[in-house]
Design a protein around this nucleic acid. Structure first.
Lengths: 249, 249
DNA sequence: TATAGTTGTCTATATCAATAGACAAATTTA
DNA sequence: TAAATTTGTCTATTGATATAGACAACTATA
């Protein structure tokens, strides 16, 4: 053993408060199974010692997680982990919202939040192979599973080719079904770029997150089987509720 | 237009300080091209108004980014974006560290930070198809490109089959070359699960990050072409420096 | 029914984060 | 050169964050 210690400590003066860092750790410990579901968390004093902070700081972290519905505290008994397995969202060549989550949730659907027609930004134009400034339709959607928001996506389509896709989306609640109306029977994911950042105000509202949460961001281009780009999308997933499982692209 | 405004605002009482949130936004704006490289940022007063905070708060964010080497401030002239395109790290069936970053950096290599022999944790055992508690070798490595840390990984190998792989790794500096010594000419990525969280103390030290940074986390299993698991790994990438580009798995 | 263990509440204090305003210092532009 | 623009520094004040200690309220158990 060459030696190295796994620091379980916490950063001060970081711009991230200690209670939020500890809340993050607890979430992670739950996700990795260090804190089992339905079991009691270590008592507050033990956690305080473990993370090297005051008990009150641990309490702030716990109360945030209670607020989020991750933990339940019972006076005199302890603090318990509520079922919190993260959804595993598959990403692959034929990623579809509903089919991907089958078996993990009893119900899932997509809500159309907004739509608009706008000139293509440089990256959208590049992704769709359009002239910069060409008109595109933007659909803002939210994916929900068992009543909990699990994704928030913006999708852009060539306005000339897909005029009226906003109505189709509002009626069908499905991108796949909407594209079918335009003669697109099959489509593939051409490229996916992945990053992560703090949730912004819009994410917090649409995904029902607590401030300080982290979102996974995918930027993808969908194409027809013969390689013609049809959709450029940017999706955001709450990192505390969703993990992305990469399958065959 | 159904209507919806893109909130560019900031969350208060979130456990994440305003200056860090603003630093995040600036990094993101640079990554998406909203703030061009080598160009001047908007002046501090403009940024303060844009984000709805005091000028001093913007200054805190900027000084953190100057510290990180992302920005350079010049009195009387302005604040400038230093080259900061994120590295695009490919993930696919045959992901290899060096080959993947070719063309984006002039130099890249892997440093072996530590190694140890330990009993397999449940998830490692499951990933490698070993009995729970079977001995495994853990290699802790850091990937560097042009002198900057871009990844930090822990890899686990069956200790019986790969006895001495720690020495091979120390000598060759390459997982691929080390595995070749054990007769593994080719290997494939069987599964990859992706998540994100705040960097912990170890990440901060090893990846040379500022506190509050976000890391992308991949958990993967590598297998031989005939499906035999050989490596279980957990890798962390600094989200501000790296994005993951998914290619054919 | 005590007693130990746990969460909940309160007070007090120190430090960090954010706002506010004023002005200095350096650079560019008219 | 003068004015305008921009970053740098200073003081002061407020609110959020973190620590510390004490004790109440509730639960489980010896």
């Amino acid at each position: 053993m060459i030696g190295r210690q796994e620091a379980d400590s916490i950063e001060r003066r970081s711009g991230v408060s200690l209670w939020r860092q500890i809340a993050d750790r607890i979430l992670q410990a739950i996700a990795t199974g260090d804190f089992a579901e339905n079991a009691a968390l270590p008592p507050e004093v033990a956690l305080a010692e473990r993370y090297g902070v005051n008990r009150h700081t641990v309490r702030s972290a716990i109360s945030a997680l209670v607020q989020e519905g991750v933990l339940r505290a019972e006076q005199g008994r302890g603090t318990f982990v509520l079922s919190r397995k993260r959804l595993s969202y598959p990403i692959g060549a034929r990623t579809r919202f509903s089919t991907g989550l089958q078996g993990q949730t009893s119900e899932r659907h997509i809500v159309l939040l907004a739509s608009s027609v706008e000139p293509a930004s440089p990256r959208v134009a590049e992704g769709l192979g359009l002239a910069r400034g060409a008109e595109v339709i933007r659909l803002e959607t939210r994916g929900e599973a068992d009543g909990r928001p699990v994704s928030r996506a913006a999708g852009w389509f060539d306005a000339r080719r897909f005029a009226g896709i906003d109505k189709a989306m509002a009626e069908t609640g499905s991108i796949t079904a909407s594209l079918a109306r335009f003669g697109i029977d099959d489509y593939l994911r051409q490229s996916t770029v992945l990053s992560a950042r703090h949730a912004d105000a819009a994410d917090l509202a649409d995904l029902d997150l607590q401030p300080g949460a982290i979102v996974l961001v995918t930027v993808a281009v969908n194409v027809t089987p013969d390689g013609q780009p049809i959709q450029f999308s940017e999706s955001r997933f709450p990192a505390e509720r969703v993990e992305l499982k990469l399958s065959a692209l």
